[in-house]
């Protein structure tokens, strides 16, 4: 989803500038006089859009290069700053976008109230200026998607029956694995004391891990979900698949944002980094064991009660 959003942004934003310059020319034509402020606005929009676009690009490129030197401990900082950066970008785009949209509406108003004039193709001008509005809306959807990705979810700790929560998500994934040769094995420790954690956060982690397990299996295979309570009250949830496994050289980068080995357009490269961020905020840990060709096991370990809350 996010990747497609970024793709959209990559293709969407560069042409927005030229389109606006073109329409700016139309505006001058319509008003019948040269207006430096209008030109300034248009150039301003073009430049800011261009700048933001290149920022987005360098962000992606930089992420890839830095990932080679990645250190596990940096992970959560990196995720936090990525979130902030994304929100910052989206916010910066929203303001010029608001101006572009407003100018287009003003142009539309001017065009529709001016008397018909010889040689002015009013209908086409109107159509064209309305299209700007449509495309502004499209950009708005993109930035709102980015903002909702970046939105930090403060965890709210509630009493959670881990087995039940896990089973809810397993059932959901099972509707898509049924009849496809993928067997789901449940190995839940019963009974298990409830823990204090953030239910929607944990649901999101489980869905992502289960979905990855499902996608790692080509043809027939097995997904095993295990829950265990440790002696000190900590809880471990393991999702094990018999899929393709993760090559050794990919393991250090597996929780990096935008790192994906899935086919283009299939994965966002954000699922695991989102999981990592959530588990972090819940006061837990997430790690992976993998054997290429044999499968992978992701383990989430959560405290019985978060450290901060007493």
């Amino acid at each position: 989803m996010l990747k497609s959003t970024i793709e959209l942004a990559r293709y969407g934003i560069p042409w927005l500038g030229p389109a606006m310059a073109f329409l700016g020319g139309l505006a001058l034509l319509a008003e019948g006089k040269g207006q430096w402020p209008a030109i300034a606005v248009i150039f301003g929009s073009v430049l800011s859009a261009g700048g933001i676009y290149s920022l987005l690009r360098s962000l992606r490129k930089g992420e890839k290069e830095r990932a080679l030197l990645d250190v596990r401990m940096l992970q959560s900082h990196k995720l936090a700053s990525l979130g902030e950066l994304t929100a910052g970008i989206a916010h910066e785009i929203n303001n010029p976008l608001a101006i572009i949209g407003r100018e287009a509406e003003w142009l539309e108003h001017l065009l529709s109230t001016m008397p018909p004039a010889e040689g002015v193709p009013r209908k086409e001008l109107l159509e064209s200026v309305r299209e700007v509005g449509v495309q502004v809306n499209r950009c708005r959807e993109i930035t709102q998607n980015l903002l909702s990705f970046a939105r930090k979810m403060e965890p709210i700790f509630q009493k959670v029956d881990v087995n039940r929560l896990v089973e809810d998500m397993v059932k959901l994934v099972e509707t898509e694995t049924q009849g496809k040769g993928i067997e789901i094995v449940r190995d839940y420790q019963q009974p298990m004391e409830p823990i204090m954690t953030d239910p929607p956060g944990l649901r999101q982690v489980m869905l992502n891990l289960l979905n990855n397990a499902r996608q790692a299996i080509e043809g027939r295979g097995q997904i095993t979900i295990r829950t265990r309570a440790l002696e000190d009250g900590r809880v471990q949830i393991a999702v094990e698949d018999t899929g393709c496994g993760i090559p050794r050289e990919h393991l250090p980068r597996i929780f990096d944002p935008f790192f994906t080995t899935k086919a283009h357009g299939k994965g966002t490269g954000l699922g695991l980094s989102i999981c990592h961020g959530i588990v972090d905020r819940l006061g837990g840990r997430i790690w992976v064991r993998s054997e290429p060709g044999l499968g992978s096991t992701f383990v989430v370990e959560l405290p019985a009660t978060p450290k901060r809350a007493s």
């Binding site: 909702s148 939105r151 979810m153 809810d168 959901l172 929607p200 649901r203 999101q204 989102i274």
Partner: peptide, 8 residues
Amino acid sequence: MRLGAFDY
């Protein structure tokens, strides 16, 4: 869930 739903 990413958009902030409580449950699905």
